[in-house]
Computed example of a mutant assay.
Amino acid sequence: MRITVTVDGTQYTDDVEPRLLLVHYLRDRLGKVGTVVGCDTSNCGACTVLLDDRSVKSCSMLAVQADGHSVTTVEGLTTNGSLHPVQEAFREKHALQCGFCTPGMIMATIDLLSENSDPSDEDVRHGLEGNLCRCTGYQNIVAAARDAAQRLRENPAATQEV
C-alpha cells in the first residue's frame, strides 16, 4: 500500500506492507530511532509519538493508519538546536536514569500539557498512565512535567508548533 505521511515536518510517500507497524516504519524506513521499541504490546509507552498532536503508541498502530496524517517524534521536537521546554525540563530535573522510557514520557507529557497547562502531581501521574519507567520511581518525571508546565505558562513563545 502507498502512504503519504508527514513526519517531523517532512512529507514522505512510501509503499509499505499493510501489516507494518508505525514504530517499525519510523525506525527502519525513516531512521527515527528515538522512537523506542519496548514491549510491542502497547503496555510500556516507550514508542509514544504524536499523531496530529495527540499521543499514540506507535507499536499498536499500523503505518497505513498514519496515511494523510502528521507524526511528531522526539527527534522532531528540537528546533534550531534548542530543546523543547519539556525536553529541557526532563534534562534539568533528572527525569531519567537509563533513558529507555524518556522519549515516550516526553511525548505523553507534551500531550498532557496541551490539555492541562497547570497539572497537579496527581494529574501528571494520571496523565502518564500507560507509560512505564522501571528505574526512576516517577518522582522526577512528575517534577519535570510540572516544571515544563510552568515554563510553558511563563513563556508561551517557547512552545514550538508540534
Rank of each mutant, 00 (worst) to 15 (best):
T41S: 15
S42E: 15
N43V: 13
C44T: 11
A46Q: 05
V49H: 00
L51R: 08
D52R: 13
D52C: 14
D53W: 12
D53Q: 10
R54A: 12
R54P: 06
S55W: 00
K57H: 14
K57W: 11
S58V: 07
C59A: 07
C59E: 12
S60R: 05
M61D: 09
Q65F: 08
A66N: 04
S70N: 12
S70V: 13
S70K: 14
V71S: 04
V71N: 03
T73C: 05
T73N: 08
T73I: 06
E75F: 08
E75L: 07
G76D: 09
G76F: 01
L77R: 08
L77P: 02
T78L: 12
T78Y: 10
T79W: 12
N80D: 15
G81Y: 09
S82Q: 12
S82H: 13
L83Q: 05
L83Y: 04
L83K: 05
H84G: 01
H84Q: 03
F90S: 08
E92P: 11
K93I: 10
K93Q: 13
H94R: 15
A95G: 12
A95K: 00
A95W: 03
A95T: 02
L96D: 03
Q97E: 08
C98F: 04
C98L: 03
C98K: 04
G99P: 15
G99L: 09
G99K: 13
G99C: 13
F100M: 15
C101F: 01
P103E: 06
P103N: 02
P103Y: 02
P103K: 01
G104A: 07
G104M: 03
M105R: 02
T109V: 11
D111G: 09
D111V: 13
L112M: 14
L113Q: 01
L113V: 00
L113D: 01
S114N: 13
S114M: 10
E115Q: 15
N116Y: 05
N116T: 09
S117D: 12
S117V: 10
S117L: 07
S117R: 15
D118Y: 07
D118E: 11
P119K: 07
D121R: 12
D121F: 12
D121W: 12
D121H: 14
V124W: 02
R125S: 11
R125F: 09
H126G: 13
H126P: 13
G127I: 01
